[in-house]
Design a protein around this nucleic acid. Structure first.
Lengths: 309, 309
DNA sequence: GGATTTGCATGAACCAAATTCATGAATGGC
DNA sequence: GCCATTCATGAATTTGGTTCATGCAAATCC
C-alpha cells in the first residue's frame, strides 16, 4: 500500500472524523467521498502498522495511537491557520475583501454563522453582502462588484469563474396539516395545478421547483410572493396555498406540527448550492477557508444536508 | 499551476532550504531533484501569490512570508517528530529494534554520527551493529538476523527487500607523493598492473575497484590487506602499494600532503551506497527517520558527497 | 424474519499532482 | 572567455490520491 509520510491532509481528516463521528460524514465535511477517506486512513494505518480507530462503533472510537495523532492535529492545525493568515498579510500587504452575492433567500440561515466564523479567523478580511437580489449574480463577479456568489447551478465553462460545490439538500412541498395531497406517496407536477404557489419575489429561473418541475411539465399555477419564510409558512398553514422550500429551512416548523411536508417527484427534488469564485481569487487562503467553513457549518447545523456528488 | 494547500512536505523543504542555503543542496538532503523543489516552491508561491525567498543570493534569503512559514516549520516539525514517536510506541507496544549490517569499513565514519542522532530522537529504539563482516549482508535480513544493511549495490527484484539510495561519492586511487602515475590525467585499469593493491580484508565482490574496473579488464594485481584506513595510508605513503578509497575518507590526508590522489577512469569511479530494508520494516517511522539522518549527516559532513541519481 | 438502509472496505479505473528528465539562461570564479 | 554552479521551465512520466462500482456486515424497519 501507500507509504506516504504523515501530511496535514491526514490530520485534517482525523479532525473531521472526530467532529462527525463517522467516515461518511467526515467525507462530506471535507468534500471527498467516503471511499477516499477509507483509503486514506488505511494508508496511514499501515504506515504506522496499526489501527487508529475502531470502525465498529458509532460514533467511532479512536485507539491510543489515533488519539495521539488527534492531539497532534489539535496542536498543529490552529498554528497552521494562524501562520497562513500571517503569510497572506505579508504577501498581499493590505487585507483582502470578500463581497458576497446571494441569490437565495434562505441562505442567510447558514451563511451568517459561516461569515461570523470567517471574521473570527481572518479579522482583517472585509466581509460584505452585496445588498439586494440580482438576476445574474455571476455577472457581478465579472464586473468586479462581488468576489463570491452563492448560486444554485454550476454553469460550467464560464470564462474566468469556477464553481465550488457547497452542499445538496431536499426541497419539499409544504402543505397545511391534513391536506388531501398528503395521502399521496409523492407529488407530481400536475398536483400543483389549481393551487396557489407561494414563493419569494424572485425570477422563475431561481426557483428550482419552477425551473425543474413545473415549467418542463407546462404547469403555471397561480402565484403569491412574500419576502419572509415565516410569512410563507403562515400563508400555507392558513390554507392560502403551497410552498416549496429546503427541508432544513422548515424542519423546525414540521417538528412542531405547524405545517406538513411532502416529497416532490418520486425521487424527491434535490437542490444544490455552489460558490462561484473568480479565478483571480481562487485558492486564496481565506477563500479556501470560507468554502470550508460554509460546508462545515451547513453540514453540521442543517438537517438532511449532504455533499454534492 | 497547482493550487495544493500547504502540506508538511512544503515545510520540510523550507527547513532543508534554510539548512543548506540552496535549492540544489536542499534537494540532495531530501533525496529529490533540484527541479522537484523548484516546482514545489513555485507551486507554494503562487498558492500564496507572492515570493517566499530570493534566489539571487547565496545563501538564499527568505522574504517575510518565507520567514513566517519557516517559523511555522520550526514549531510544527518537532511536534510531528515527537508525535510519530509516541504513535509508534503505542502501536507496536514495546520498542522497535534496528540491527544494522555493514559491509563497508569506511562507513563507520558517517554511520556513528547518524546512529547517535537516531538515539537522541528515538531513545527506545534499540540500535545495534551486527558484528563482523558478512559476505551477504542482505542474506542477514532474510534470516532476520539484521533489520537494515548498508550495501554498495542495489540488486533490484530481491523478494522482500527494497533498496533505499543513500549517497554517491568518488573513489580515488591513493598514491605516494611524487609517484609517476600522478602525471597521467587519469588511471586506466592497466595502470594498476605491477603495483600492489592495498585493500580491506573483504571478498573481491565488495571492492568497487576490483568489481568494476580491474576484473572486467582481466587485471589482478598483487594484494595486501589491512583492517585500518590509517594503516592503508601508511603503507601507501611508504611506497608499498596503491589503494582505492572514497575521496571523503582520505580528504584530510590529502589536504595535509601525506599522500596524493588520482582519478580512476576518465570519468572517475563513482561508488554508491544503499540501505537494504526488509518490507516488513519499510516505512516504519524510525526507519524513515534513520534513512533521512544517514543522508543528512553524510551530505552535510562528508566532502564531495552527492545524491544518487 | 425478510427487507431496507446505513456505514465501511476493496479493487479497478481514472485523473491530477508531484517528480524527473532534458535543456537553457544567468551568475560567479579563474 | 570558459567552465562550473545554480535555478527555471516545459514535457514526459510516475506516483498516488480520488472516484466508481461493488460487496458485505450491522442496524433498523414493518
Amino acid at each position: 500500500m501507500s507509504h506516504s509520510p504523515l501530511e496535514l491532509r491526514h490530520l485534517r481528516t482525523l479532525h473531521a472524523l472526530r467532529d462527525s463521528g463517522s467516515l461518511s460524514r467526515a467525507a462530506q465535511l471535507l468534500n471527498l467521498t467516503q471511499s477516499a477517506l477509507s483509503h486514506q486512513m488505511k494508508g496511514l494505518e499501515d504506515h504506522y502498522g496499526g489501527a487508529l480507530f475502531e470502525r465498529k462503533s458509532s460514533p467511532l472510537a479512536f485507539t491510543a495511537a489515533g488519539q495521539r495523532l488527534l492531539e497532534l492535529a489539535d496542536a498543529l492545525l490552529p498554528l497552521v491557520a494562524h501562520a497562513e493568515r500571517d503569510v497572506a498579510r505579508r504577501v498581499q500587504g493590505a487585507a483582502g475583501s470578500l463581497r458576497i452575492a446571494v441569490e437565495c433567500h434562505t441562505c442567510f440561515d447558514w451563511l451568517m454563522p459561516a461569515m461570523d466564523a470567517l471574521r473570527a479567523a481572518w479579522p482583517e478580511v472585509e466581509l460584505d453582502i452585496v445588498s439586494g437580489f440580482h438576476a445574474d449574480p455571476v455577472g457581478l463577479l465579472h464586473q468586479d462588484r462581488a468576489d463570491l456568489a452563492i448560486v444554485s447551478e454550476a454553469t460550467e465553462g464560464e470564462n474566468g469563474v469556477s464553481f465550488e460545490p457547497l452542499f445538496a439538500f431536499e426541497i419539499v412541498a409544504v402543505l397545511p396539516l391534513g391536506h388531501a395531497l398528503l395521502a399521496r406517496p409523492w407529488l407530481a407536477a400536475a398536483d400543483f395545478a389549481g393551487h396557489t404557489l407561494i414563493t419569494y419575489p424572485v425570477p422563475d429561473d431561481m426557483l428550482d421547483l419552477v425551473r425543474r418541475v413545473l415549467r418542463p411539465a407546462g404547469i403555471a399555477p397561480a402565484r403569491r410572493t412574500t419576502e419572509l419564510t415565516v410569512a410563507m409558512l403562515q400563508l400555507v398553514a392558513s390554507g392560502r396555498g403551497l410552498a416549496a422550500l429546503p427541508l432544513w429551512a422548515v424542519k423546525s416548523y414540521l417538528d412542531r406540527g405547524y405545517v406538513a411536508s411532502q416529497r416532490i417527484g418520486e425521487q424527491g427534488l434535490t437542490g444544490e448550492l455552489f460558490a462561484a469564485v473568480p479565478d483571480r481569487l481562487a485558492g486564496r487562503p481565506y477563500v479556501a477557508e470560507f468554502l470550508r467553513l460554509m460546508r462545515e457549518t451547513s453540514l453540521l447545523q442543517l438537517s438532511g444536508v449532504r455533499r454534492i456528488v
